[in-house]
Design a binder for these strands. Sequence first.
DNA 1: TTGAATGCAAAGTTTTTGCAAAAGC
DNA 2: GCTTTTGCAAAAACTTTGCATTCAA
Lengths: 153, 153
Amino acid sequence: MSTKPKSNSYAWFWERLEQYLAKAQLKQSKQRNVIIEEFLKLEAHVSAEDLYSHLKSSDQNPGLATVYRTLNLLKEAGLVDQKQFSDGKAVFEVLHPDSHHDHLICLECHQVIEFHNDQIEALQEEIAQKYGFALKHHSLDLFGTCPHCLKKA
Amino acid sequence: MSTKPKSNSYAWFWERLEQYLAKAQLKQSKQRNVIIEEFLKLEAHVSAEDLYSHLKSSDQNPGLATVYRTLNLLKEAGLVDQKQFSDGKAVFEVLHPDSHHDHLICLECHQVIEFHNDQIEALQEEIAQKYGFALKHHSLDLFGTCPHCLKKA
DNA sequence: TTGAATGCAAAGTTTTTGCAAAAGC
DNA sequence: GCTTTTGCAAAAACTTTGCATTCAA
């Protein structure tokens, strides 16, 4: 290991990553750790470009291609989720182990609020069963205008 | 009007399109009608490229740029919905006036099944209210393995 | 006749890839 | 030492745009 991970609240993340790398016979690297550190620090829906900009100031300053490669690695490891919010660029977010959440997205200010609803989750499972699907994951996005933007208008 | 629309089951679609064009002071055209005819005929989640390929054989044979322009026009008219199923290219589908539906997507064969569930819709409205959002639309995609692919495995 | 639509090719965006050099194990 | 990773630039993939021409009203 080239750099000690510092995001302690994401111990599980680093651990699962390490497992994945070991199983896939991949190596660790400074750049990757720097990128992931920053990604976890941002705690949001981040695009490769966003992440790259934030890293510009770091001492490591990895290339954009490496940022892409790292995010794809995390995706393959099942640690992050990639989403397309219809503005061209893909955004990534940490895939928390148990607690799934969905999104409320403001069409005006693009703010994203996360929520969770057990009833909806249960209904989804019901529907999947009805159609004979083995459900792996899902994505629910509600689009509208947030309270703040409603007030402005 | 250069070409008579032939998709009679989509009379409402052509009507609303005509209204939109009139209001926006836009013109009709042969190519546009050919493209839309084909789009409606396909009745599926279609990418611009898909649609373009299908049109290759038609007598009109419009350019790819025109296909894009037409789909964007329909989007602006609120007649179609654009989605990103995470494979790079955007797909479009008819936005039916009242009946909203969601998607069950097979991760193996990429088959898409549409479903509708009033309870989920109601819960979504509830959640939006709780957060003070004025809901405009939503998107629910369930990913998993379809019965057919489950049998194969 | 006037403004919109088209086709083509060129440009724009976002993401991936090839390759030589560097780094991890 | 052998293999993976990196950085850069080039390429790829998807979509938009500029411009001269054609077409609709």
